[in-house]
Design a protein around this nucleic acid. Structure first.
Lengths: 117, 117
DNA sequence: TGCCTATGCGTCGCCAAGCAATATATCGCC
DNA sequence: GGCGATATATTGCTTGGCGACGCATAGGCA
C-alpha cells in the first residue's frame, strides 16, 4: 500500500479487485496497474497480495481464467463469472453500509473539518 | 461484529474506540455499549477485541486510565490524552481519504443503485 | 438459599490476511 | 552483456480479530 493507512485497506482489497474486473477481462499485472491508476497511486497491490486474492477468487468461482501463451509474455487473463458479478454487488452494498455505519459512529467528527481561519 | 462484513471492520476498530472516547471518559464495558448504540447495533465489540485495543492505546499514551474501586463493580476509566485527541484527528482524516479513494476505485459502482423499476 | 443473568476486566490460542522476500522467465533498451 | 520493466507464483513472518475461557460482583426471582 502507499499513502493510505494499510490497516484500513484490509478487507476491501478483494472488493477492489472485483471492481477493476467489472470493467472487462484483465491479467494480474494489468489489474495491479489499473488499480494504481484508479486510486490516484494510493493503492499499489503487491504481488504477494494480488495473486493469492486472484487464486482465492478462482477457487470460489468468482472469476474464470485462461492462460495466453501466444506471446513471449505468459499472461493469465481473468474474467468475472455471473457469481462474481453478483458477489461484487453484494460487496459494494456491504461497503456502503460500512461507510454509513462509520459516519454514524464518528458523528460530528465525520463532518468536514472547519477551515483553519 | 454483527450485521456488517467483519473483514471490512479490521483497521477501523481503534478509530471507533477513540471516537467514542472523544465524548468524555468511559470504562471498557460502557465503551462497548455506546459503540453498539451509536452504530445501530451493527458493531458489537467482543471483550477479546476491546480490551487488547484499550491496553494498546494505553501503551501508546493515547489514553490515560484510572481504577475506580469505590463501588462493588471495579471499573477502569479511560480518558483521551492530548496525543490521543491528535491521533483521533489523524485517523479521521485517513478514514476520509480512504472513503474517497474507494469512491474513485469503484467509479460508477459507487453511485446509488438505480431503482428496479 | 440457590440460581441465573448482566456487569466488569482480563488472557490464551487459533486463524486469516497482507506482504516482504525470493524464484523464474521474457522483453526492450543502451 | 546488463539493467529495469513486465509477468506469475510461493514461502514464511507478523498482526489483528475474536472465540473460549477464567474470575468476581450485583440484582432479581423462586
Amino acid at each position: 500500500m502507499d499513502g493510505l493507512n494499510p490497516e484500513l485497506m484490509r478487507g476491501s482489497l478483494e472488493l477492489m479487485v472485483l471492481s477493476v474486473l467489472s470493467d472487462g477481462s484483465k491479467y494480474g499485472y494489468l489489474i495491479q496497474q489499473r488499480l494504481k491508476e484508479a486510486s490516484d497511486e494510493l493503492v499499489d497491490l503487491k504481488a504477494g497480495t494480488l495473486y493469492p486474492i486472484l487464486h482465492k477468487l478462482e477457487t470460489k468461482k468468482m472469476v474464470r481464467c485462461r492462460w495466453d501463451d501466444s506471446t513471449g509474455r505468459r499472461r493469465k487473463w481473468y474474467e468475472l463469472t455471473a457469481a462474481g458479478k453478483k458477489q461484487l454487488k453484494v460487496r459494494v452494498d456491504e461497503w456502503q453500509a460500512y461507510v454509513e455505519c462509520l459516519r454514524r459512529v464518528l458523528g460530528p467528527l465525520a463532518d468536514p473539518s472547519p477551515l483553519p481561519a
